[in-house]
Simulated scan of single mutants.
Amino acid sequence: MSILVCGSLAFDTIMTFEGRFAEQILPSQLHILNVSFLVPGLRREYGGCAGNIAYGLRQLGSSAVPLAMVGNDAQDYLGRLQTLGVNTQFIGITAGNYTAQAMIMTDRDNNQITAFHPGAMSDAHTNAVPTDAGVKLAIISPDGRDAMLQHAQQLHTAGIPFVFDPGQGLPMFNGEELTSFIELASWVTVNDYEGKMLSDRTGLSFEDIAARVNGLIVTLGEQGCEVWEGGQKTSVPGVKAAEVLDPTGCGDAFRAALLHGLSQGWSLPRCAELGNKIGATKIASRGGQNYQFAA
């Protein structure tokens, strides 16, 4: 089964701050914030939600078809995806823009500060959902605002079930738009912070959201996740990481496992169990899209 992954392809610049953000930022001085962080550790990785999810799907043996836009600086990235067996047919290239760039800084408590330049991602809406590529399942992950809106509608019109994963793109949408995403989607997945924001903006409880889709998954970090189906909650325990090294991308690893399980016809709790396992593997690894795991 081909799985369409709508979202961003980006270059991640990942920096490690050895202190704590909370010790450097004075709450009483936020109105004149002027802070510099010394980051001894720095590396540049292939990233973006679509890229990370596609990588995870291929690690699990599933077919991944990203739908994304990149700039003319992405030839190495496209080559890497092709080497991994990822279908790059529907990745568009736009001239005059850089590929999206994320600058991610992590402190010793695994808190993160991220700056994101969308670049070519802003044109992602010009890349329509393919309806003749054998796609049977999809995900809407963080992307350009117009792209997320249009791709959700296109998937629904084409009768392709999809996961709505707003992630860090959730603040771009108002309550009416988020409610529309829920109505169009087959599943919704958020972390606990995003889940609270989704409920606040739509006025819908988790029970209400779950009643409108096949299932709602709320991830809780090391505490595992909640799976809501038909108004009922199932708690799926977390998997303790062997060592906490880098949380960047573990949410996308969870989404890859979720999609893999759905494509196999698994129950949502079973999908979540694999997601917790894969997320723990990712957080215990370094090197961006270089972690290894077994299904």
Results as ranks from 00 to 15, higher is better:
12 D>E: 03
15 M>V: 06
20 R>E: 14
27 P>A: 10
28 S>P: 13
28 S>M: 11
30 L>V: 09
33 L>G: 04
33 L>W: 00
35 V>L: 05
37 F>K: 03
38 L>G: 02
43 R>E: 07
44 R>P: 02
47 G>M: 01
48 G>A: 00
51 G>E: 02
55 Y>W: 07
55 Y>P: 09
55 Y>N: 08
59 Q>R: 15
64 A>R: 12
69 M>Y: 06
71 G>Q: 01
78 L>M: 08
80 R>M: 12
81 L>V: 14
81 L>F: 15
86 V>S: 06
91 I>A: 07
102 A>E: 09
106 T>Q: 04
106 T>W: 06
106 T>K: 05
113 I>A: 06
118 P>T: 05
122 S>G: 07
123 D>P: 14
124 A>G: 12
132 D>S: 05
136 K>E: 13
137 L>A: 02
144 G>W: 01
148 M>E: 10
151 H>L: 08
155 L>N: 00
155 L>R: 00
157 T>D: 11
163 V>L: 15
163 V>S: 10
171 P>Y: 15
174 N>D: 15
178 L>A: 11
178 L>G: 04
179 T>N: 09
181 F>N: 03
187 W>Q: 01
187 W>N: 09
192 D>V: 02
195 G>Q: 00
195 G>N: 01
199 S>C: 11
200 D>H: 15
204 L>W: 11
204 L>D: 12
205 S>T: 02
205 S>H: 01
212 R>W: 08
222 E>F: 01
223 Q>A: 13
225 C>R: 08
229 E>N: 10
236 V>A: 03
239 V>C: 10
240 K>E: 09
245 L>R: 00
262 L>A: 08
268 L>V: 07
269 P>V: 07
272 A>K: 09
277 K>V: 14
277 K>M: 14
284 A>S: 10
284 A>Q: 10
287 G>R: 08
288 G>M: 12
288 G>W: 10
295 A>S: 08
